[in-house]
Write a protein that binds this DNA or RNA. Sequence first.
DNA 1: GCAATTTACTTCGATATCTAACTATTATGT
DNA 2: ACATAATAGTTAGATATCGAAGTAAATTGC
Lengths: 170, 170
Amino acid sequence: MVPPKPLRFDPIREAHDQWVAHGWSQSADGMAVVTSIMRAQQIYLARVNAALRRFDLTFARFELLALLSFTRKGSLPLNKVGARLQVQPASVTHVVDRLEADGLVCRVPHDTDRRATLVKILPPGRAVFRKAVKVLNEEVFLDPGLPGEEARSLVNLIAAIRLGEGDFVG
Amino acid sequence: MVPPKPLRFDPIREAHDQWVAHGWSQSADGMAVVTSIMRAQQIYLARVNAALRRFDLTFARFELLALLSFTRKGSLPLNKVGARLQVQPASVTHVVDRLEADGLVCRVPHDTDRRATLVKILPPGRAVFRKAVKVLNEEVFLDPGLPGEEARSLVNLIAAIRLGEGDFVG
DNA sequence: GCAATTTACTTCGATATCTAACTATTATGT
DNA sequence: ACATAATAGTTAGATATCGAAGTAAATTGC
């Protein structure tokens, strides 16, 4: 995944220069923001997947296990899952299918709303989550590539973007 | 793509609190960084794809057209494309296949290395790029959701991550 | 000069995501 | 009440990515 030879220049800076040279100065910073986010995601996703592969988890599946294990009852309606993880209903179905096939969660009918389904974490799911979070903390989250103060700045800058996009209300 | 109802709290902040509560304080900031990047990518990818859909482009295809159109000869070996866009050879093959099927680029044999193949942008490719970059600038890059100064901070923070990851040498 | 290695690209199989269409159930409005 | 609209979830189709294996050509190292 990681290229053997690093480039001898910053390709995003170069793209920014190109944008300015073509008269698109007003959009150059935005282009750099978007491209930087895309690349950072690629980097982190590769690191996360490498850490989780041994547990047969992806980041999406890990996030669902985390969400459920932090819940009082260990279960949540599927639509709440979609809202929390910000993914389409179809993706929720797929993630739950996959975890259910591995015996880490199960579907449970909703008490009162017969349209709705709950997903519930099972003991094996809790066990896998405990092991996976330990590895992920050690191998990725402990060193995200930025010192603490800058890490918090990055989180706050992105929170502003998410707020503006309607992810949540402050 | 965007949920109709925003959450009444920041789910990443809540996850951070959970990390601290479980004794994973040392990894909490890193978790928040990684999760924030993942969510920001999701937001921007949706906006970018919505803008590019009318041109039958994806962000990856757009990036390749941009890269080629900024090149002196309008062509580049496939391995250079992979290095620049930071994607696997298989992904390069796929993106080029797709653009070639649409008549926007073509493959050209390398002059001296018979293993290598160049991808060359064609006049229709340049025309589509000109239109697409205009729309993308207007609809996404002009307002990335952050004021200029903060946008530049974000780009610099991510550049530090990328530098640490070996994307390029400063 | 020739075997072994490296490099370039393609093919294949598995995943994950999105959009759109579809079924079932619940809520709304007159 | 009852037709209409909204909501919950699944299914289907298209796309994109990755990892690993495979083919071909160039480089290397005796």
